[in-house]
Computed example of a mutant assay.
Amino acid sequence: MTTLPTGRSVRSTPEGLLWEPSERWVRGYKGEVAVVDSRHPVLVWEPDLPVPQYAFPSGEVRTDLLRPAKNPPTGTHTGSQIFHDLEVDGELRENAAWTFPAADLADHIAFEWFRRRDTGLDRWYEEEEEIFIHPRDPHKRVDALPSSRHVRVEVAGTVVADTRRPVLLFETGLPTRYYIPREDVRLDLFESTDHRTGCPYKGRAQYWNWRGGADVPRNIVWSYPDPLAPVAAVKGLLAFYNEAVDIIVDGVRVERPVTPFTASLKA
């Protein structure tokens, strides 16, 4: 019988990594093949990456599917790593996995996941719930709270939303997002797009573009038609990027924040 640690603490390595054991059951699939099936994953934070990633004991990874990397990259992750290509059913994905140089993480294997397509695995699960983009950070909160604040949104000087029944979404490290009922949004001023994103805390989002012709970034409005249970209150509501529109809350104009999304918001 394996005794699990009862205390949780973040530890550091000389290489600048932070890591913490997790008690979640994590599985990763390439197609229908379970490449990772781990009950002892470790969350790892790299210095220049704002979200955690998982590393797994090699005994809980299908190492028989890994090959020495033919074209290993440089400068991709912290320290000097050993990269592996992944081969499943005749398909090769280069540099899909790697090992960290830290002694604390010896005999652990990590897989590409965060914001990278066509590398690593196709699907990830924590327990029985599919997780998108990156693992959830246990030190981060996301709360969706119904409110009676008066919220008005302007795009290029035009009032596009006005409500007294928003849902405010508070997410650690990001500005407050104001989710507004569709009936209180001038959705006729926008057009739907094919853009889709996934969030490990909220689910999958759909987007709309501004039709006004001004210098406004694309996909400025989004909604979660089927959000994850913890943020069910935002279901079907619409939110705007604070970074690129004007939001007035109870008569006070909210300062446009600078966030990790700012650079990617282009007209």
Rank of each mutant, 00 (worst) to 15 (best):
T172C: 09
D184I: 03
E23L: 14
W210V: 11
A205D: 06
V42M: 12
R115M: 12
V142G: 02
S148F: 07
R116M: 07
V221H: 04
S147Y: 06
P14C: 07
H150G: 02
L189N: 03
G212L: 08
V167F: 07
R211T: 15
I109T: 01
A214H: 08
W45H: 04
D118A: 15
I247Y: 02
K70N: 03
I247N: 01
D215N: 13
P138E: 14
P68I: 14
D64I: 08
Q81V: 14
C199K: 12
E130T: 06
F56L: 09
P146I: 14
L145G: 00
V216E: 01
N219G: 02
K140V: 09
F190Y: 07
P138D: 13
R27S: 10
A97D: 05
D226V: 11
L187H: 04
F261E: 03
V258Q: 07
K202T: 05
L169E: 02
M1T: 10
R141C: 02
P101R: 04
G7M: 11
T2Y: 05
D64L: 09
V61S: 05
T262K: 12
K266E: 07
G28F: 10
G31R: 11
L228P: 00
T3A: 14
A102P: 00
E60K: 03
S223I: 07
